[in-house]
């Protein structure tokens, strides 16, 4: 008996908390899928490597519907790690497990991005010149279907998980931080890539690629010296050739004004 006890001792169980993105399909499902496809066309690879939880409390698809929905998502390369708001009888053993204790996180990796796609496109094009920032803030507000824009701004303003790197980012390295800002104390080499959910701050020369605001159109890119290969905010991008020549080698900031990227010397 003692040997059994000791061998059992070597199996360790840990509890861990992860941030996951929750997809909440809404009826009619066909329209929702069309919307999802439009979103994916705008940000291909958005779901790549991201844990996704499916919230079925609104859709209420039934046993047959769950199987079809999972099939539809799999065709779009979206992997579902768990299901929320479903009847246990809908799920069979091969499906992702039922999750019960989910809580709304303040820094959600994209509150319901497919739903966000629907207001974002018209909102940005209709009201581009005057005030892009509150407009952009309204995007997740629509998604979370919360009335006040203050609640929407709160998750954007907090950014408790900014990532600080105090060494240069080398060629071939790729820094991905979907949860907030990235601050690099040093340079980003040619052939390196920094991807942030929020803004990107580079206290050195930016020679590589900076991809900011994967879920925040208000995000900006700052650098002490611009030599970048590519700059991108919220899906809009600009390659070195398109950058104004007089700004190369200068300290700059980049932000989004409606559907165009604006670059100015700091």
């Amino acid at each position: 008996m003692t040997t059994v006890a000791s061998s059992r001792h070597s199996i360790r169980f840990h509890g861990r908390t992860y941030h996951a993105m929750v997809l909440e399909p809404e009826p009619p499902l066909a329209n929702w899928l069309t919307e999802l496809d439009a979103w994916l066309a705008r940000s291909p690879g958005f779901f790549f490597g991201r844990p996704v939880v499916l919230d079925l409390s609104v859709l209420q698809p039934g046993k047959q519907g769950v199987a079809e929905l999972l099939q539809n998502l799999a065709e779009r390369n979206i992997k579902v790690m768990g299901i929320e708001g479903a009847e246990p009888s809908w799920l069979d053993f091969a499906m992702p497990p039922l999750l019960l204790t989910g809580r709304q996180a303040n820094v959600v990796p994209g509150d319901n991005p497919p739903a966000a796609a629907e207001p974002s496109a018209p909102a940005l094009s209709s009201n581009s010149a005057s005030e892009p920032a509150p407009d952009a803030a309204a995007v997740p507000a629509g998604a979370a279907s919360s009335p006040a824009s203050a609640t929407a701004e709160a998750p954007l303003a907090q950014h408790p998980n900014s990532l600080l790197l105090d060494s240069p980012v080398r060629s071939g390295q790729c820094i991905v931080h979907p949860e907030g800002d990235v601050i690099v104390v040093g340079s980003v080499a040619s052939g390196a890539e920094v991807i942030a959910g929020g803004s990107i701050h580079i206290y050195g020369t930016l020679r590589g690629r900076a991809i900011a605001g994967s879920r925040d159109a208000r995000a900006r890119i700052f650098c002490r010296k611009l030599e970048a290969e590519l700059l991108s905010i919220d899906g809009l991008y600009m390659v070195a050739e398109d950058m104004p020549a007089q700004l190369r080698g200068q300290p700059i900031q980049v932000w989004l004004d409606g559907d165009s990227m604006v670059m100015a010397q700091d």
């Binding site: 060494s167 080398r170 060629s171 071939g172 390295q173 080499a189 040619s190 052939g191 390196a192």
Partner: peptide, 11 residues
Amino acid sequence: RDSDRIIGLLD
């Protein structure tokens, strides 16, 4: 640039 890549690997 290649050296920079190598430094990244060394790290």
